[in-house]
């Protein structure tokens, strides 16, 4: 799933490790989510949204490449 976590993190000047610490997860988790290798659970997605003061939909885009191409 595509997301804008890397951009939001860069805006705040946070490293992956700093964001991971705030969420109580590993740095690898943040890296996997940012690169789209791993989709977070709903509770973690809510925690990320709360931290960046945005809605889940503003951060995560559930449209696949095929759906985007079809539009």
């Amino acid at each position: 799933m595509k997301n804008i976590i890397r951009a939001l993190r860069a805006e705040r000047g946070w490293s992956q490790a700093a964001l991971a610490d705030q969420l109580g997860v590993s740095r690898q988790s943040i890296n996997a989510i940012e690169t789209g290798k791993y989709d977070p659970s709903l509770p973690l997605a809510f925690a990320i949204a709360r931290l960046f003061e945005k809605s889940i939909e503003e951060i995560f885009d559930d449209q696949t490449e095929a759906q985007l191409a079809a539009e």
Binding site: V25, S26, Q28, S29, Y38, P40, S41, L44
Partner: peptide
């Protein structure tokens, strides 16, 4: 006890 991604791995 660990986070969800580490648990999966």
């Amino acid at each position: 006890e660990t986070d969800e991604y580490t648990r999966l791995v």
